[in-house]
Design a protein around this nucleic acid. Structure first.
Length: 922
RNA sequence: GGGCGCGUAGCUCAGUUGGUUAGAGUGCUGCCUUCACACGGCAGAGGUCGCUGGUUCGAAUCCAGCCGCGCCCACCA
């Protein structure tokens, strides 16, 4: 083995070997265990969120595979309608063309080509993460079978009346020229203005304060061209006389009524609201209640259409706004302008300001689907981890709105609806089916609906359609419902809720029994990672390393806001002056596990991954030590085990019990911490050190040597298996060296059983003995460290006092203590003997002394003792106070009180000894 | 406006059902290039657990209020 761990030399060959050998496929006849991958965008690339998510999923998958479950990690990718279409359109634009120039068919063909050339990017990257996905079963949301499932679902829902087409006010993205769903609208607070306009009253009417006009306030002046009423609150005294009167809409000239509606808040602005039913969701409702006409003044791209007066036609909405304000002002109708903060709706993909627009769209009547989906979580068929996300789910589901599923896009599943010349709509699995079902002759002209379904409509079918639905496949029978969905809280509504609804509807089963919600990955400052901010990290750069210049290049190229580049470059050079070193996949995965605390966002800190890279190296070197001490050795034959052997076996029992519980409860952080602590601070720091005196002593009993060597190997081998789910590569590489020495010739750790705590004996006696030994060793080391005794300078140790048990343990561990404390001799003093001048440590009642003999600086020793005495005094004081409290003694459980009493006695005794010691050295 | 989460060592985070001296990693200080590992070893310093009050024999932990930060939902022009 190499001197230090080099992830590059092992990772890719091992992965290729696993994949070629088909180890990722389900096997055996154990209980089924299945996770479906949240399908990444087929043309996307791996980001930190993926890397995090896949680490957790792969850990679960590998763990269950090792436990003998028939384990399937279902692979697949998503066509990501809008995102992918935008990308390809941008490429076209770069060539000076638009999608309309080349037409629908050619455009879709081009997207398929793009998928063919770049679709393996993400899958290649997933392999680099070590993800043990079953590639042989890979699916795509637009593959033939999946598309059939989508079609089937649409047709069945339509036939049941749960999908309908309607003319509705929807969220319209004027840049992408498509409808989007409520969820795809992001509201952000922005600084705007509130314009106050005067609308002249007709028929000589006047307001209570004598004006011949009403003042309305608006944040969207341009929409006034579509106003069809002015509303006031029915109880508003100021306007009682005006309800039912009319005003003349300026610039347009239309006469519109003054109406009364509860919607108006009399305390806001003037208490008068202009009503534009075609361009505002609230106004639309008001309009419906009052039977107002709808005047739509916007075209699809949000320029003004012919319903607007001539001067405004063709203007962009923001230009129209300026023009309207200017014209109003010119006519003396601009009352005033105020600064005003408002929530601006923007499309989550385009960033364009969303326009409520009246169009014909397809909707899912969602409430009938939502009800059983709510019940499934209420009754525990689906459980969220952490639990509080269930409230998020419930609150959305209980107020759910009909779902707009049609998109005016080309890349996606085209809606299976056809129209005849009369505008009648026919829905079916194909044009032929439609013709047959509705008895339409060959000659009847049918036109297919040009729209596609939004991506989440198809991904909602993910768990069951990937397993073969609508066919009744064996996979569906075996693996569905899947066991757990691992995903981020940002897509609970988009995806999780819709999967639960659709899956219950079409399979009668929940899609998964558990939903593990992980946090979002943020940068070290807690900022969301984004291309725009230039603060993103590429998981592959953490694995392989990247130079500073390369990192700057990646962060600043193809920016949507190129003006940000200098700032991003500056920050990057500051944050990563040396670029990023290569940490390897195992270190990255270990970091994600260690940071995966429940439901909390992850701040990705380079210091953490560096620490875990070091951990990998530690493990690697521990293995080197074990191998070089066991390889040539005879292991068969009688074996005897030392206290140290029994202790590390006992600690292994503890490790396995704790880590298994941690994984089973999705506490990946505790799992990682337990592995780390055991491997480094128990196995390496103590056990390996404890074996050295035996291994390197030619006189050691061969049976003891065999016991030690077997224990070294057995524990290491179990540790490797225990750690394999989180760090697959290094454990595999090392395991292949270690396992053969134990007579295990099988090819891969991946398919070995996960180690069980029961296979290692808990041993309280050995635990106590080694704890005692640690106490003595640490006592001497503390003296040495504080006194500045050089590491290679040996000391003599004298023991005094203590119990018979102390004597036994001292005898049993003498050689070990000598080595670990760098002691030349260990001797005993009778209880009444006067010790030489010494530095003192206490282990219970046992005095551990290092004779000064010119070694130790008296001042340093005095300082050390004073520190220790101060500490004990504080303890005595605290415990004394506690026990002097009558309430504590009478009300606390007797066992607790007794423990505290014992602690006080110990502390007092130690304090006395230490004080005496201080006095003795003057 | 409603809901949720967070605030513990310089930094990133653990801390089960209230009960040893509140822990880890990283960073920091001192010593050590000893035969697994300097991506290392040994020793050490470092915290009023956001604030205030309450419950309790006992609170980082439970309750209330407040302060600060973040997120989600919501139709106020």
């Amino acid at each position: 083995m190499e001197h230090s761990f080099d992830p590059h030399s092992i990772e890719q060959p091992l992965y290729e070997e696993w994949e070629t050998a088909n180890y990722f496929a389900p096997r055996g006849d154990g209980p089924a265990y299945c996770i479906v991958i949240p399908p990444p965008n087929v043309t996307g690339s791996l980001h930190m969120g993926h890397a995090f998510q896949h680490t957790l999923m792969d850990a679960l998958i590998r763990y269950h595979r090792m436990k003998g479950d028939r384990t399937l990690w279902q692979m697949g990718t998503d066509h990501a309608g809008i995102a992918t279409q935008m990308l390809v359109e941008r490429q076209l634009n770069a060539e000076g063309k638009t999608r309309y120039d080349i037409g629908r068919e050619a455009f879709v063909e081009r997207v398929w080509q793009w998928k063919a050339t770049s679709g393996d990017n993400i899958t290649r990257q997933l392999r680099r993460m070590g993800s043990s996905l079953d590639w042989s079963r890979e699916r795509f949301t637009m593959d033939e079978g999946f598309s059939r499932a989508v079609l089937e679902v649409f047709v069945r829902l339509y036939d049941e009346g749960l999908i309908y087409r309607g003319q509705r006010l929807v969220n319209w993205d004027p840049e992408l020229k498509t409808a989007i769903s409520d969820l795809e609208v992001e509201n952000s607070e922005e600084q705007g203005k509130l314009w106050h306009f005067r609308y002249p009253l007709l028929d000589g009417a006047t307001t209570a304060d004598g004006h011949d006009y009403l003042v309305v306030a608006t944040t969207r002046p341009e929409t006034m061209l579509g106003d069809t009423a002015v509303a006031v609150h029915p109880d508003d005294e100021r306007y009682q006389g005006l309800i039912g009167k009319r005003v003349r809409l300026p610039l347009v000239g239309r006469e519109i009524p003054v109406i009364a509606d509860d919607y108006v808040d009399p305390a806001f602005g003037t208490g008068c609201v202009k009503i534009t039913p075609a361009h505002d969701f609230n106004d639309h409702e008001v309009g419906t209640r009052h039977d107002l006409p709808l005047v739509n003044v916007f075209a699809e791209d949000a320029t003004l259409n012919d319903n607007a007066p001539e001067p405004y036609r063709g203007l962009d909405r923001f230009d129209a706004r300026k023009r309207v304000v200017a014209d109003m002002e010119a006519q003396g109708l601009l009352d005033k302008v105020e600064d005003h903060k408002l929530m601006v709706p923007r499309g989550d993909r385009s960033g364009a300001v969303i326009e409520p627009l009246l169009t014909a769209q397809w909707f899912v009547d969602i409430e009938p689907l939502a009800k059983p989906a709510i019940a499934a979580v209420e009754n525990g068929d689906v459980e969220f981890v952490p639990k509080q996300y269930e409230n998020v789910y419930f609150s959305w589901m209980r107020n759910i709105q009909d779902w707009c599923i049609s998109r005016q896009q080309w890349w996606g599943h085209q809606i299976p609806a056809w129209y005849d010349d009369a505008g009648n709509v026919y829905v079916g699995r194909s044009e032929a089916e439609v013709r047959e079902k509705h008895d339409l002759g060959e000659s009847a002209a049918l036109t297919r609906d040009p729209d596609v379904l939004e991506t989440w409509f198809s991904s909602a079918l993910w768990t069951f359609a990937t397993l073969g639905w609508p066919e009744e496949t064996p996979e569906l029978e075996l693996y569905h419902p899947t066991d757990v969905l691992v995903t981020g809280h940002d897509i609970i509504f988009f995806w999780v809720a819709r999967m639960i609804m659709m899956t219950l509807k079409f399979t009668g089963e929940v899609p998964f029994r558990k939903v593990y919600i992980h946090g979002l990955v943020r940068d070290a400052e807690g900022q969301k990672m984004s291309k725009t901010k230039g603060n993103g990290l590429d998981p592959l750069d953490l694995i392989d390393g990247v130079t500073l210049d390369e990192l700057v290049r990646k962060r600043t190229e193809n920016l949507t806001q190129p003006q940000m580049a200098p700032r991003i470059e500056k920050q990057t050079r500051k944050d990563f002056p040396e670029g990023i070193p290569s940490y390897g996949t195992d270190a990255l995965r270990f970091t994600f596990c260690a940071l995966a605390t429940t439901g909390r966002d992850v701040r990705f800190d380079l210091n953490r991954i560096e620490g875990y890279r070091n951990f990998c190296n530690k493990l690697w070197n521990a293995a080197r030590f074990v191998l070089m001490n066991c390889r040539e050795a005879e292991l068969d034959g009688e074996a005897r085990f030392t206290l140290a052997d029994r202790w590390i076996l006992s600690r292994t029992h503890h490790l396995l019990a704790v880590s298994e519980r941690a994984i089973d409860t999705y506490r990946f952080d505790l799992y990682a911490a337990e592995l780390y602590d055991f491997a480094w601070h128990e196995y390496c720091d103590w056990y390996l050190e404890l074996t050295k005196p035996l291994l390197w002593n030619e006189d050691t009993d061969p049976a003891l040597l065999r016991g030690t060597r077997r224990t070294l190997l057995t524990v290491l081998e179990a540790l490797l298996r225990a750690a394999h789910p989180v760090m697959p590569f290094i454990t595999e590489a090392v395991w292949r060296e270690v396992a053969p020495l134990l007579g295990n010739g099988r090819p891969t750790i991946m398919l070995e059983p996960y180690p069980k705590a029961a296979e290692f004996a808990a041993d309280r006696e050995a635990d106590a003995a080694i704890e005692w030994l640690k106490g003595v060793v640490l006592g001497v080391r503390n003296i040495r460290g504080e006194a500045g005794i050089k590491p290679r300078q040996t000391v003599d140790v004298l023991l005094q006092g203590g119990t018979a048990r102390d004597r036994e343990l001292a005898a049993a561990t003498e050689e070990l203590v000598k080595r670990l404390a760098t002691a030349e001799t260990i001797g005993w003093l009778e209880a009444d003997a006067a010790p030489p001048a010494n530095a003192l440590a206490l282990v219970g009642d046992l005095k551990v002394m290092v004779p000064l003999a010119g070694l130790i600086d008296l001042d340093a020793e005095r300082a050390r003792l004073e520190k220790e005495i101060a500490r004990k005094e504080k303890e005595v004081q605290r415990l004394g106070g506690k026990l002097a409290n009558a309430g504590f003694v009478s009300k606390a459980p007797p066992a607790v009180v007794e423990t505290e009493r014992q602690k006080l006695r110990d502390a007092e005794s130690a304090l006395a000894t230490l004080r005496q010691q201080l006095a003795s050295i003057g």
